[in-house]
Each structure stands twice: as C-alpha cells, then as structure tokens.
C-alpha cells in the first residue's frame, strides 16, 4: 500500500438482488486530499461511497465481495466494529437531513453518544464547529430551536458541522451541493478546500465543472466500473481512456 493512501478498495463487487452494481473496483484514495468520484448518474458512485462506511448494511438483498482497507483495517470484514469505523468518517448526503432535535443537539449528538457529557466542553465544541462552517453568526442566538427551521443551505452546513464534531479522519460527501443555492454551494466548496488540510475528503459528483474546480484526485466511473483514476491535472489534461475523453468532451448526457 502506498504510504499516503488512506482508503484502498480491492476487488470490490456489489450485487443488489441479481443486479451487478459495482464491478471489480480497485482504487486508492490519497490522504489529506480531495478525491472526486466522477461519473454520470446511476453509475454506482453513491453505492461505492456507502460501502466505505458500511451503510450498505441497511439495505436488503445487498451482497458484497472484496475488501476496503482504511488504515489497513478491512471495513467489510465481519469482525470489524462498524460503529468504530463509522466514527472515522463523516457523511454529508445529497440533501441535508438534520436530526429531529434542536441546532445545538444536532452538533452535540455524536459527542454525547460517545459519552462526552461535560456541559462546558460541549458548549465550546459546538461553538467551535459551528464557527468552522460559518454558521455560528447566523444561529448563536437560537441554538435551541429545531434544526428543521433553518434554510436548506444552513442545514447542510449544520450537517457538516455535526460530522466534523466527532473528529473524523475522512469526510464522505455525496453530491453535497446538489440541493443548494449557488452561494451555499460555494461556501461548502470553499470549506472543503480548507478542510482537506486535515481530512481526507471523498466527494461524489456528476458535475464536471465542480470536479475541475476542486479535485486533487479523480476516480471516473461508468456503469459500475472504474474507467480511470489519477491526479486531477493529469486526468483532465491528458486522459488515457477513450471513454474518459468522450465524457470530458460532453458526449454523455
């Protein structure tokens, strides 16, 4: 394994019922970089992302073969403590889903779950993470209102804060800007640029321009297969595969 590889996927196959959704996936995701998983909708990007923290466990009829190593530990191994693994990864989904509680508790939730109940320490951390996502100024005077009352853009930033609060090493983001207005999208993108100093970020998107803007490393998927992967510059300027070229020139959709 490459020294600064954070996540390594080996021979991953995934079936839902009889459908072969992911086909022999082999990828390496570098540490403290922003990796984009790119591809047209329905190519299996989101499924791949959900494999990484085993959210696939929630679905019926899913069969997975292969391994996903995070720091040399196989996520898919049955003996792995899923809860511990999941703590290493923050998740940002397509639309924000704030927990059914107030703003404060949304951020404090993960901390309280892992047993940190000191009020002062919690207060400080909640403030810190809300500041990190530039939300503090907007909500500091209504921390005890339901999170569902925030705007969508605010909710998405809250979801990011709540994910950061549990000290993950990796951020998994599934088209995190697709439901947002341009300004909120930009905030999230810029936040990612900062966060990648400390976190390994894996982001799924089908927006080519977005990938060009922020990617360090690109994995291109099509119909459940990885077609090409490599550093962003190389990928965009000098793609090797015909399919990639066609995609970059806009031949798909």
């Amino acid at each position: 394994m490459n020294e600064n590889t954070k996540i390594k996927v080996e021979h991953l196959d995934l079936y839902i019922g009889k459908q072969h959704i992911l086909k022999d996936i082999n990828i390496e995701i570098p540490e403290n970089k922003l990796t984009i998983i790119l591809g047209p909708s329905g190519c299996g990007k989101t499924t791949l992302l959900k494999c990484m923290n085993r959210l696939t466990d929630l679905y019926h009829d899913v069969k997975i073969n292969g391994s996903i190593f995070i720091d040399n530990e196989d996520v898919l191994h049955t003996k792995t403590d899923v809860t511990e693994i999941r703590k290493k990864m923050g998740l940002l989904s397509q639309r924000p889903f704030p927990l059914p509680m107030n703003i404060y508790n949304n951020v404090a939730y993960g901390l309280k779950i892992s047993g940190r109940r000191n009020k002062k320490a919690l207060d400080a951390r909640v403030e810190n993470y809300l500041k990190q996502v530039n939300l503090w100024d907007e909500v500091f005077d209504r921390l005890h209102e339901p999170a569902s009352k925030l705007s969508i853009g605010q909710q998405q930033r809250l979801c990011l804060a709540r994910g950061l609060a549990v000290d993950p090493e990796i951020i998994l983001a599934d088209e995190p800007t697709s439901a947002l207005d341009p300004i909120s999208s930009e905030t999230i993108e810029r936040k990612f640029e900062e966060l990648k100093q400390q976190y390994t970020i894996v982001m799924v998107t089908h927006i080519l321009r977005q990938a060009r803007r922020i990617a360090d490393y690109v994995i291109f998927m099509y119909m459940g297969e990885v077609i090409e992967q490599g550093p962003a510059k190389e990928f965009f300027e000098n793609p090797k595969m015909e399919r990639t070229k066609a995609y970059l020139q806009g031949a798909f959709n």
Partner: peptide
C-alpha cells in the same frame, strides 16, 4: 422516515439502538 436520517446518525458513531432511541422514536 427517510433512511438518510438513520444513515446520518449511524455515521456519527451511534449504534443502531441509539439511532432508534434518540432519532427514530423522536421523529
């Protein structure tokens, strides 16, 4: 209840039962 809510809670390090207790039952 959208499954994403369960996913969110699980990825914050909650167990399945904690997710049920604090998130699903509340929702």
């Amino acid at each position: 209840i959208p499954i994403e809510l369960t996913e969110a809670s699980l990825s914050l390090g909650a167990t399945k039962w904690e997710t049920i207790k604090y998130v699903l039952l509340k929702k």
